[in-house]
Design a protein around this nucleic acid. Sequence first.
DNA 1: TGATAATATTGCACTTGGTGCAAAAATTTA
DNA 2: TAAATTTTTGCACCAAGTGCAATATTATCA
Lengths: 217, 217
Amino acid sequence: MIASDEMTKATGRETEGRRERKRRQTRERIEQAAISLFLERGFDVTTVEDIAERADVSKRSFFDYFPSKEDVVFAWQDGFAEHLMRAIASRPLDEPVVKAVQYGLTSAIVSAADERALRLGELIRRTPVLNARDQFKYAKLEAKLTEALKARSRSEKESERMRLLAAVVIGALRVASERWAAQPPGGSLETFAHRFFADFWKTLIDFGNEGLQIRPD
Amino acid sequence: MIASDEMTKATGRETEGRRERKRRQTRERIEQAAISLFLERGFDVTTVEDIAERADVSKRSFFDYFPSKEDVVFAWQDGFAEHLMRAIASRPLDEPVVKAVQYGLTSAIVSAADERALRLGELIRRTPVLNARDQFKYAKLEAKLTEALKARSRSEKESERMRLLAAVVIGALRVASERWAAQPPGGSLETFAHRFFADFWKTLIDFGNEGLQIRPD
DNA sequence: TGATAATATTGCACTTGGTGCAAAAATTTA
DNA sequence: TAAATTTTTGCACCAAGTGCAATATTATCA
């Protein structure tokens, strides 16, 4: 139990008994074994037995730590949605939603982008079944974002707009992550995000204006 | 072989030998058996053997017609992307892209929305694994749309904008399908689509304007 | 400390989706 | 009718995942 405070590596070591510690260690061992095997050989050709063997646990135990093979790849991402929710909730209520979203997303992105994320991103991109699941993650993220935004809105009308904002902004997130991956590495992610969003809002206006010109054929 | 001309029910019956005819009939039998079982009992609890039995073929033969259980649900959707591509390609090149997209999408939606689509939509919505795959479909659709739009654009700059347009518009499609499903049935889909888009473009402008106000904290 | 309760780990049998292959059945062609 | 082609099937097999009961480990408390 209690996977809630994995962040308490330094602070809560006193309260972490042998049981919790061993369980955490085992989980980390499994995760490391799995990821390294995935990167070495590929996701599909790596069997759960391979992973279990390298992590020195039984195949059955693997499923006691992760509900599926795929979940090993995506477990670390779980924090992203939570971070985003918290970041948005922490913005002042009188702030324009769009601004709250931009800052929330930027904060979540920056905190999630590390070395491992890049390598896993590569793996996900070149593995169809992981790719599919990644899209599902975006959908769930969109749902959570919608929820967070609706919580800020006062009218029904505004709520409907928030659903649209979430959809549009998660779409932007997908594009942004593509562009960031295609960029020469080393740049500042904050700067990139800021520029991307600025361009994005401008482009939205262009699209909107073009769309408003449309008259029935 | 030859799944290419399934539309030739009336016209090409002379050229369709016993082999092709039986194969088509078997495929339809399997599909019907599967869908009806999915709707009766649910997707997860229906086994391929159940389907094969109701369709009176062997389990092995099922996989000769469909690569996976999920594919039975999504096979019919394959036409959507093609229709969209064709619809967009048929719009005049000097037409604003946004207009071409709106009309292309509307056309594809209208042609795809039938009785079966609604019931399958319900099934997909309440079955997580199908839901995931559905999201993947959207992603692939987005990729195809991007491709179609980039084919229309002349500059690199414009190409990048097209990637954004595709993302934003497919996001809109997701929201639109939600709203349509939540609506009292019986209305005109064309009218609904037209109104939705009009509202959508206006909302984009609002979001864009809000976004442009953002200054660094 | 030692007994006992709680939890973690494992082995094992089982179900299901999916594939490869070769034999058998149906269909077309000569 | 015989030969060639395609379809269908049976069968053995692999891998993901689950349920369950037995065992081992750790925590608790008298």
